[in-house]
Design a protein around this nucleic acid. Structure first.
Length: 901
RNA sequence: GCGGAAGUGGCGAAAUUGGUAUACGCGCUGGAUUUAGGUUCCAGUGCCGAAAGGCGUGAGAGUUCGAGUCUCUCCUUCCGCACCA
């Protein structure tokens, strides 16, 4: 009965770790040791729980955490829950339960699932963004933003009080201003400010959304509802001030290049110039932004966005009807329609002209929807010769085209956007693009027609939502409409108890946002301080707020006097912040951009010690699975699909020539991300029940590289399960339950195998290549299966190498080997150099680059002897007959190549 | 359209710097043990060929003594952005 009893073993060690608090890191830990902070992107506690795709990253970080502990690091490995947000609120509305109740239930279930995976989190540091003790500090950070401004001279955020002092000193009427006027001046500087701007309004969700939460076809990322642009007074965060640093500081972090690229593109920094064009015959000018000031001589017309404020004033009576109709049509189009047929250019002439400042030519002003009001100045100078879109437009409306950059010989395209000398450009002629840009910017500045500037795609972050289940703003409104912050001492502003927290949804785009908090009790809504009456801010923060700083709170989650103790922060964040942050690529822009922004503000204000929060980022792939749809295209339960021979699809889905059926009807096979919608989710609970969680951990790491998306295939699990059984059988006698070790000295060959395996596994741990680490252990064990008893000197290091991957079995074997303590902090085996060199090496011999044989030589053989031996290899000698050897190449330890003709 | 990542056996995948392509696992084939079963054990398994040998990393060129790896052109798939001036 002493077979591999994984249920008993796993239950035993999970209890042991919990009872002994094996992975607890004391608040005041030994800071003389090196630290390693390894973090997961914390989950949203959803009602359906985890499927096997979710833990992929958690297993990986757990392996790293366990490995680093054994390497002697102080390891911080915490977990928490990102629990504010729409789904909990929607579920609560549907079931009439308070979101706090559903959130807590979901957390409970997810905790159980996480613990059943044997993850070595320090659960004493668990947190949820919905904890009042947590969001108190989220509100506190908001106050830091509210009470700061961005000083462009020193390029950092500073306390708003310092701006007040500065304004007092400069005294441009500051002293004579009313308090309300002063506040409105300051609000133009605060990093968190209330303003009326066009925002993304989603009536179906009853809330406004950030740009990052709207898909590029103009719908809400959550729920896929239509989103409308509407001017509304909302809270914004001045993230645009950080555009440069959000790009520049990417150079200092170890992140996947695609993620850095996505962030750079999202910020969208463009260097160029603003140019003023005088309107012909009017006392008005139009400013355009261009990245190609060098092409100003080639400008042949100007285009305004339909929403541009000057359109109405400029349009001549003859053109008015056409322009008005065009603008109305453009307004009715969604962004989707405007972008859909982007190759077809439309527009209408306003009848007005501007003067090109460089050559006084008259340029017609057009209105066209290919120019967007939301970027640059909403107006462009059109240079068809050097811009594809302008060329296309000029072709449609027969506008002139003047080349100002000489295309290379043989160029047969239309617009030329590449390098070349300037032509037809007066004082720029002959200059390259870069010099011409510089020269033109200088000319514009000297003559007062413009200046060099930088434009960003990034917009300020719309930060308020009309929801109940979020952090309340620590803000009070006076009756005159001005605002003030809640005193720090009065934090937290707790969510008021409410029974009707339903958002006011509507399908009318003109409906007004109605924050649920407006229905809170008067006792919460109305506040009186020093005889002044206030009403609380009714909006709540977006879901991203809590995840912007949770990695800091993990460092010191119990602290109730500050958001994180500075000494502890300095130790755990160290030089480069979080040492390893693993999560899905879906957060490449949103969460990671927002968190970096908050971190930089905290850095500027002296609250954290690193420029960047996450020194190293790693994106794990997705677990995918086969899925099946019936004739109507509806997904059917993948587990109930069979092939033409009646075999379950799960067993034969990767074999060619299969047809699949669900309840007798033919279905089509596809392949996609595991989840509820494709009905192909596999629960970790059932895999753990039949194979154990050590097997599940091993399997998820073994199917492929961590960063790759890869298919789940329940059939393949037996492979790693067999490996674990083989380990067990080789160490424990099935009859007697006795440990099968010998005290013999290992042979030299055995030593070499052990140390080579140690070397491979260690290197693979460092580069997160767990699939090859497991392969190395399988190969190593395969050499020992014939041994009655494995020498203890081999068995112990082997168990330690296995420990991060399959910790329950490793702990059990370690204990049976006579060790009283957990192996969690036992030193990782070191590969010794003496055992990494072989006595004899096998080399390949090539003739003219083709392998013709192999031979063995002593490891210390000389080059000449090796080449001589190579030429004697039977097959090689045959190929060299009647040929003259021209060259002999010896690659040490690898091969000999003989070049002969 | 622009940008990025990736294409290796029937399947998942290996192959630090250019140096013996297909490690390891699944599946498959054969055998062993067992009353039986397999979540047991052993052996074989890229393709063509009886063999010798030849051919093989999406396609085609190139550089090199030597290319899965480097360069160029093209094809396919996935991801991101989408008139960003």
């Amino acid at each position: 009965m002493a077979d591999y009893q994984f249920q008993d073993i796993e239950r035993k060690w999970q209890h042991f770790w919990e009872n002994e608090r094996t992975f607890r890191v004391p608040k005041d830990t030994d800071t003389s040791k090196s630290k390693y902070y390894v973090l997961d992107m914390f989950p949203y506690p959803s009602g359906v729980g985890l499927h096997v795709g979710h833990p992929l990253g958690y297993i990986a970080t757990d392996i790293v955490a366990r490995y680093k502990r054994m390497k002697g690091f102080n390891v911080l490995h915490p977990m928490g829950f990102d629990a504010f947000g729409l789904p909990a609120e929607q579920f609560a509305v549907e079931h009439g339960v308070h979101p706090r109740v559903t959130t807590e239930n979901n957390i409970e279930n997810m905790l159980r699932q996480l613990k059943s995976l044997g993850l070595s989190y320090d659960w004493d540091r668990k947190l949820a963004t919905t904890d009042v003790d947590y969001y108190k500090w989220t509100q506190w950070i908001f106050l830091q933003l509210f009470n700061s401004w961005y000083d462009r001279e020193t390029n950092r955020a500073r306390p708003i009080a310092e701006l007040q002092e500065k304004l007092e000193e400069e005294d441009d009427g500051w002293a004579s201003m009313s308090a309300a006027d002063r506040e409105s001046v300051l609000s133009q500087y605060r990093l968190a400010f209330l303003t009326e701007v066009p925002v993304n309004w989603c009536p179906a969700l009853g809330t406004v959304l950030a740009n990052e939460e709207v898909t590029n076809d103009g719908r809400s990322e959550r729920g896929n509802h239509p989103v409308f642009q509407r001017p509304l007074k909302q809270w914004m965060l001045r993230i645009t001030e950080y555009g440069d640093r959000l790009i520049a500081d990417l150079d200092g972090v170890d992140w996947p290049e695609p993620v850095k690229l996505m962030q750079r593109n999202w910020v969208g920094r463009s260097e160029g110039a603003n140019v003023q064009f005088q309107v012909d015959g009017e006392d008005a000018s139009i400013q355009v932004f261009t990245t190609r000031p060098d092409t100003l001589f080639g400008a042949t017309y100007m285009v305004l966005a339909p929403e541009h404020p000057l359109v109405d004033m400029l349009t001549t009576p003859e053109q008015r009807e056409a322009v008005t109709r065009y603008c109305e049509e453009a307004e009715a189009k969604t962004d989707l329609d405007r972008g859909a047929d982007s190759r077809v250019k439309t527009g209408v002439f306003t009848g007005a002209f501007v003067i090109n400042p460089v050559n006084d030519s008259r340029l017609p002003i057009w209105v066209a929807d290919y120019v967007l009001m939301g970027y640059g100045t909403g107006a462009i100078m059109a240079v068809p010769a050097q811009d594809d879109r302008d060329w296309a437009f000029a072709e449609v409306y027969d506008l002139p085209i003047i080349r100002t950059v000489q295309p290379p010989e043989g160029f047969d395209g239309k617009a030329y956007t590449g390098e070349g000398p300037a032509i037809n450009s007066g004082f720029l002629d002959g200059l390259g693009v870069a010099e011409a840009k510089t020269a033109m910017i200088q000319w514009l500045q000297e003559h007062g027609h413009g200046e060099g500037t930088v434009t960003y795609k990034l917009r300020d972050w719309l930060f308020s939502r009309q929801r109940y289940w979020g952090e309340p703003f620590p803000i009070l409104h006076r009756e005159d409409g001005s605002v003030r912050a809640v005193d720090e001492a009065d934090l937290p502003v707790a969510l008021p108890p409410m029974t009707d927290f339903k958002p006011t949804a509507s399908d009318d785009p003109d409906a007004a946002p109605q924050p649920p908090l407006a229905r809170a009790d008067e006792s919460w809504l109305k506040v009186e301080i020093d005889g002044v009456r206030y009403q609380r801010e009714l909006n709540t923060m977006p879901q991203w707020a809590g995840s912007c700083w949770y990695y800091l709170r993990f460092i010191d989650n119990q602290n109730d006097s500050c958001f994180v103790d500075p000494k502890r922060e300095a130790y755990w964040m160290g030089e480069k912040g979080v040492d390893l942050y693993i999560g899905g690529v879906e957060h490449a822009v949103l969460h990671l951009l927002y968190a970096r922004f908050w971190h930089k503000v905290l850095f500027d204000l002296g609250h954290v010690s690193t420029k960047e929060p996450f020194g190293r980022l790693f994106n794990q792939g997705y677990i995918q699975a086969y899925a099946y749809r019936d004739a109507r295209g509806i997904a059917v339960e993948a587990t109930e699909v069979v092939d033409q021979d009646g075999r379950p699809a799960m067993e034969v889905q990767d074999q060619p020539g299969r047809q699949f059926f669900y309840q007798g009807a033919a279905v089509t096979q596809e392949y996609g991300k595991m989840g509820k919608s494709l009905k192909n989710a596999v629960s970790p609970d059932e895999i753990i029940a039949s194979y154990g969680c050590d097997t599940l951990r091993l399997y998820e790491m073994y199917i492929g590289p961590l960063e790759a998306s890869k298919p789940w295939n329940t059939r393949d699990i037996v492979g790693v399960h067999r490996f674990l059984r083989r380990v067990w059988r080789n160490f424990v006698d099935a009859e007697t339950d006795e440990l099968l070790l010998s005290d013999e000295e290992p042979s030299d060959d055995q030593q070499r195998l052990l140390h080579r395996t140690t070397e491979r596994v260690s290197a693979d741990m460092e580069r997160l290549s767990f699939n090859t680490a497991i392969a190395a252990l399988i190969e190593c064990l395969a050499e020992w299966v014939s041994l009655e008893r494995i020498p203890r000197a081999l068995a112990e290091p082997f168990v330690l190498l296995l420990a991060p991957l399959a910790p329950h079995m490793a702990e059990e074997l370690w204990q049976r080997m006579g060790h009283n303590a957990s192996l969690a902090y036992t030193a990782w085996p070191e590969a010794q150099a003496q055992w990494l060199v072989d006595e004899a090496i096998t080399l390949a011999v090539q003739v003219n680059g083709k392998v013709r044989g192999t031979f063995s030589v002593p490891a210390d053989a000389e080059k000449d002897a090796i080449i001589a031996a190579a030429r004697e290899v039977e097959n090689v000698a045959r190929h060299l007959e009647s040929a003259t050897v021209h060259r002999e190449i010896y690659v040490p330890g690898r091969l000999v190549n003989i070049v002969a003709k």
